[in-house]
Computed example of a mutant assay.
Amino acid sequence: MISLIMKNKKLLVAIGLVTVFAACSLGDKGKVRHVRTPETVKLLANLKKVSALGFMFGHHDDTNYGIGWDGEEGRSDVKSVCGDYPAVISFDLGHIELGDTVSLDNVPFSKIRREILNQYKRGGMSSLSWHLRNPLTGGDSWDVSDTTVVKSVLPGGSNHEKFTGWVSKVSAFINSLQTEDGVKVPVLFRPWHEHTGSWFWWGEKLCTPEEYKALWHMTVDILREDGVNNALYAYSPGSEPQDTVQYLKRYPGDDLVDVIGFDTYQFDRDSYIANLEKSLTIIDSIGKAHNKVIAITETGYEGIPDSKWWTGTLLPAIEKYPIAYVLVWRNARERVTHFYAPYPGQISADDFVEFYKHPKTLFAADVNSLYK
């Protein structure tokens, strides 16, 4: 069961989990296409339950580095401010495709693996994104100089074999996420994100809807063929879609997606609130129609210059929607103005404590039985 400590009264709330009898999806004529671990099935069931009480707070690379520190075991800017770890921590696998030992943000993959295991042990969830290189040009994810990259990695394309090898490196990493007892740790994998913009080589103007869907299908097929049975999958465009039709234009299908969300950031407050309202309304509708978990997969306000941003902007904009989690981006130790969670002494730190105390915000201690 999930034990949630409602922080305003420190009330222990027990939620009974739905018993899950089937851990597989069936293809035509009853043929088993994919089997998930019991822990992964339970994670999905828990995500569907958690939104009934509130939403989990998440932070990218939370335990890897922060403002003024790098790689210290057990440290977290969020924990330093409120006394608890985020319920969700996301990590990026960029450069794993190259066979590098460190990510594009200079974090050893061994450290990322260790932190995912630590997050699992404390009851939290880990999410994985992948800012991989451009397999055609050799540039980074943001290299949009060629509009044929996605086509080149699909079957028959000049980079198909290279790309399948890249995905298999992701498979090997996810398969390696095991406890001392050999239990595979379930994670949420969020590939090909923000594709409704055109700043990544898989973006809207860089490939057709059919090519994008084929990219998704191929990616998940490779992972499954490689034995990855401990991953849920998240579909997360930006806030560009104006309605459900636009949101689903490149949707790869219910059989490949467990979580639907969106990424959006604040630049202008009024526009940000409007984007949140529009996008939350869209995913709430689709989530109910397709029986999918909904979440705000990336958001934030760089530098958090508003001392009341957490309770004055973010919380009132999202609390009425049944999202499973909201995740803010990283606190970059190499760019001291590039941070999205408070650290001790930061102008919004006190307000973040109030956000933490709110009964709907869930942190690691509140979901410490998420996988049990």
Results as ranks from 00 to 15, higher is better:
V50M: 08
E97C: 03
G71K: 07
V107A: 00
H34F: 12
D92Q: 09
V78H: 02
K10A: 02
I96D: 03
L26V: 10
V88H: 00
A87G: 15
G99M: 08
G27F: 07
K49F: 03
F57H: 11
A14Y: 13
A23Y: 05
L11A: 14
L93P: 00
P108H: 13
A22M: 09
T19V: 13
G94D: 10
D100S: 15
K111I: 02
L11I: 14
G83M: 08
K29G: 03
I112G: 00
L26I: 08
N8V: 02
N64L: 11
S25F: 13
V41Y: 02
V35L: 12
N46R: 02
S80L: 01
G94Q: 08
H59F: 08
D92V: 00
V88T: 04
G94T: 00
G68T: 06
N46L: 06
K42E: 11
N8Q: 14
V41K: 05
G74L: 11
A87L: 06
L93S: 02
T101C: 09
G66L: 01
I96M: 11
P86D: 09
K42A: 11
S80G: 09
E72K: 07
I15N: 07
L104K: 04
E73F: 07
D61W: 04
D62S: 12
N8E: 15
G68R: 09
V13L: 03
S103V: 06
E72C: 01
K29S: 14
G27E: 03
V18G: 13
D100W: 07
L53I: 03
S51Q: 04
K9L: 13
L26E: 12
L11E: 15
Y65R: 00
L11W: 13
V13P: 01
R33T: 13
F21E: 15
A45Y: 06
T63Y: 08
D70H: 11
M56E: 12
G27W: 04
A87N: 01
A45P: 01
D105I: 02
D77G: 10
Y65F: 14
L104Y: 09
I67H: 03
G16A: 11
L43M: 11
G94F: 00
W69A: 05
K10H: 06
